[in-house]
Design a protein around this nucleic acid. Sequence first.
DNA 1: AAATGATGTTAATCTAGATTAATATCTATT
DNA 2: AATAGATATTAATCTAGATTAACATCATTT
Lengths: 194, 194
Amino acid sequence: MDNKPFLDYIKNFIKLTDEEETILLSKTVHRKYLKNQYIVQQGDICKSVNFIISGSTKAFYMDLEGQEHIVMFSIEDWWTSDLGSFITQTPADFNLQCIENTELIQFTYENLEYLYKAIPKLERLFRKIVERAFVASQKRIIRNFSLTAKERYQIFKRTYPKIEQRVPQYMIASYLGITKEFLSKIKSQLIHDQ
Amino acid sequence: MDNKPFLDYIKNFIKLTDEEETILLSKTVHRKYLKNQYIVQQGDICKSVNFIISGSTKAFYMDLEGQEHIVMFSIEDWWTSDLGSFITQTPADFNLQCIENTELIQFTYENLEYLYKAIPKLERLFRKIVERAFVASQKRIIRNFSLTAKERYQIFKRTYPKIEQRVPQYMIASYLGITKEFLSKIKSQLIHDQ
DNA sequence: AAATGATGTTAATCTAGATTAATATCTATT
DNA sequence: AATAGATATTAATCTAGATTAACATCATTT
């Protein structure tokens, strides 16, 4: 199995010895999911944080009217989890579902706690990863409040060009917090604008 | 100066020896701000993460039309910073301003990096703190998308009863992403509902 | 290649929340 | 206690985006 993308990713944050890399990998599971398979379902306890080697996932919340609200897309070299459920080991608010066939590296709660003890440097790694995720989340809140749907869509396209091409429009609408019909309208406006 | 609230807070996450506590405190600054003073202004580099001993602050973004959008309130026993600016040492997106007279403990970038080396357990502390902040931020995104303004206001009241009483209505409206006029309407509806 | 299901578009109508503006209340300061 | 500035309320009108519904296109399976 190909762990190289993961080890390369980690090198951006911390340096590990060969021995540490071996310990780290020994406590992870490499796993493949098919398109549409669930990694976690709302209400279950989220058992892992997952680093994506290939493919893509969406994290979404299903509201009382049965509507999906996408919180996050994840593709190669990024993470997916319901972190709230994972860190407290309580039922998940979100579903994690694969949009494409997806290959990922999984850290279970127990293994990750073990690893924090065995390789304390990993605390630093995950601190930095979560810091970045938090900052992105805060910026998204601001964008949702201060920009129109059209502006948010344009930023989305610029920021995540890879995702735009691989994900159906209606999921992008959900991520932007608008209906698919309104996204369709925005797109035709953007074409006619010039 | 009274560091007890801070040391008590930390004990929820990690155990420190007396010696470690001393090192930790030696690398922090205890500071008082008056009502309305800025801790950081948008465009400046955010020089500290701040633990609040007493008082309250708001983190807000001023948009191109001059409108304030409040990202976060912070009161005693919680943190405030523009973490994006702090971790990358680049210009801040947000202003941090005191709502009341506020007393806080400041960690500068250099001191915190020093402390991570001197007391590696602090990586764990801050990992856990940021994890919680991230989870709260994600939940807020979901709430903003899937609930009406009235529902969000009711949740806000339940979740932050202390803040509701200490902060003017128009700031709560900004935090909820609505106008002060509309919040006023919601409040009178809630009174007349029953 | 026809049929089925998933995805996308267009247009008409509707509504949550914004905007504007006038008035009221509360809080400090002299 | 009078004035000024900050905060809150109310009501009329307006708009970004939702809803509904009909139709179009694309992909997959037989």
